[in-house]
Nucleic acid binder design. Structure first.
Lengths: 116, 116
DNA sequence: GTTCTATGACGTAAATATACGTCATAGGGT
DNA sequence: ACCCTATGACGTATATTTACGTCATAGAAC
């Protein structure tokens, strides 16, 4: 029963944390950047470009796919992965909103205006 | 030797993943939102507002502080935490740049233009 | 049909993260 | 001085994540 204390938070907070977790590993960041830059998107090619075993890369792909951040379409023998740009745009907005709220105030400036 | 395969990635990718990991838990998202909204920032108050034990909250605070996303100043008996808005702004730019690159293309649109 | 190839599914070991309870410490109040 | 309070440090149990090797499957090539 440890760990899943997650349920006690806002849906927004959970959602943001969930997406953040998806980006919380350099391999997944690299995968998204790869998919963004190349059109290739063949699973095998992705694995070849990363310093990880094919199995591990596949696992990361599954995680991204589980959140629907990427999609995979079977094309005969190979699988073609691609970004779900629509969802990514939504996610970007969420992050933007979050950071905007966080950076709005001048909380504890250089002269620590913090009046605690 | 498992796990730390992280070293094989770009500094940018690691940096982004690192910050993302900081936001990968609803408690830490909640903490940042709390610090952004209230001026309170007293450690004890933060713990009181979250559905977690004081110890656990303190642990999350340490993690955020380790990344310098928040700062704590000792004020007698209590500790006053506050956001490092300057760093947060930088981080926001990193995320924005990342997402912009990711959402730029129309990769695999509805009609799967993916020519794999 | 047989063989080869690209993938995902499954199992597993090691590393981390999460959540707490229990001390230890340092400043305040009396 | 003595006790109370707010915090961080430390130790620990459980849950998850990472990373890989090894099958199983499904289509392609012959």
């Amino acid at each position: 029963m440890t760990y899943a204390k997650t349920a006690a938070f806002t849906a927004d907070q959970q959602r943001l944390a969930c997406v953040a977790k998806a980006l919380a590993h350099p391999a997944r960041v690299a995968i998204i950047q790869l998919l963004a830059s190349k059109q290739t998107c063949i699973s095998g090619d992705i694995a070849a470009e990363l310093p990880l075993s094919r199995t591990t890369v596949s696992q990361h792909l599954q995680e991204l796919k589980a959140l629907d951040l990427i999609r995979g379409e079977i094309d005969g023998l190979t699988v073609c992965y691609c970004l779900n740009t629509e969802l990514l745009r939504q996610v970007q907005q969420q992050f933007t909103a979050f950071f905007s709220a966080a950076t709005a105030g001048t909380a504890c400036g250089p002269e620590d205006a913090c009046a605690c």
